[in-house]
Amino acid sequence: MAQAEHLASTVLLGEHGRRRAGMGDEFWQYRPIAHGDEVRQIDWRRSARSDVHFIRQKEWQAAQSVVLWVDGSKSMGFTGDRSRAPKSDRARLLALALSVLLVRAGERVGLANLGAPPRSGQVQLLRLAEALSGELSGADYGTPVTRGLPAHARAVFLSDFMGDMRGVEAALAAAADRGVRGALMQILDPVEEDFPFDGRTIFESMGGTIEYETLKAGELRQRYLDRLAARKDRLEHLARISGWLYDCHHTGHSAQSALLWLYSALERAR
């Protein structure tokens, strides 16, 4: 929680507005008067500068619900360097820091893993911190959880997305059916991106259910990189057709840049 609060404090953001007209205190835009508008809605100062009467609209600022799914599978426990935190640590930190920013902006936040409705306030942040402190599950790879997603809410999935893509496809389809949009953030270790292996190598999944031994690991590099690029393209395509946004983040890079992307992605996924 302390790390998340510190990360959130390094990000200077404006009001997390709804970016459309409605009930609120902040100015949104001027628009020409239309049939059905009342005379009392006219902004006479703005209208005096034109031959057209204008209505002053305010931005809708009702709280929205944001649901986070953080992959807790064994594969997220991987790190290619003992001095570098595993993918799971980065995913949990980003999820909690994003929750801090959203709660500060008056939003409701929840974890899909908990199955409880999104809530606001400091107590909710403590609930999320506790939930995100648990052990990784026994499964090698995770599948996004969509149960309990409120209709027309926003969602964020944080994972390495190294498992069966059919689970991701089903989750995005279920979200789209409920009018839910959001962001996919794929979190990878630099070793998974570079594949710096050569000679005799034994590859084993984090859960120990898959093992492969080769004497010529270097010859697999290009095939691996092609498969990884194809998976990224598939994730980006699925996100695009579902009205979501996709980004890939490496644990060797700044968490601040990833947090900024996630926050702005929720603004754009409307």
Rank of each mutant, 00 (worst) to 15 (best):
D226A: 14
F197M: 00
R221E: 00
F197T: 01
I210Q: 10
T214V: 05
L215C: 11
R200K: 15
M206P: 10
R221W: 00
G208N: 02
I210K: 10
E219Y: 09
G218D: 04
Q222Y: 07
F203L: 03
F197N: 00
S205G: 11
F195K: 06
D198R: 15
L220R: 01
D194H: 09
E204G: 11
G199E: 07
E211H: 08
L220V: 06
Y212V: 11
A229V: 14
G218T: 13
E219M: 04
D198C: 11
Y212N: 02
T201H: 14
L215V: 11
Y224I: 04
I202Y: 08
T214Q: 07
D194W: 08
E204C: 12
F197S: 02
G208I: 06
K216S: 12
P196H: 03
M206N: 09
Y224Q: 02
R223W: 04
E213M: 08
P196N: 04
R227P: 14
G199I: 08
S205F: 03
Y212D: 02
L225S: 11
T209W: 00
R221V: 00
M206K: 10
I210N: 08
E213N: 08
I202H: 14
G207E: 06
S205R: 09
I210P: 01
D198S: 15
E213A: 13
L220Y: 05
A217F: 04
E211F: 04
I202N: 12
T214R: 03
Q222H: 08
D226T: 15
S205M: 05
S205V: 06
M206H: 09
A229G: 15
M206R: 13
K216Q: 12
T214N: 05
R223C: 02
F195H: 08
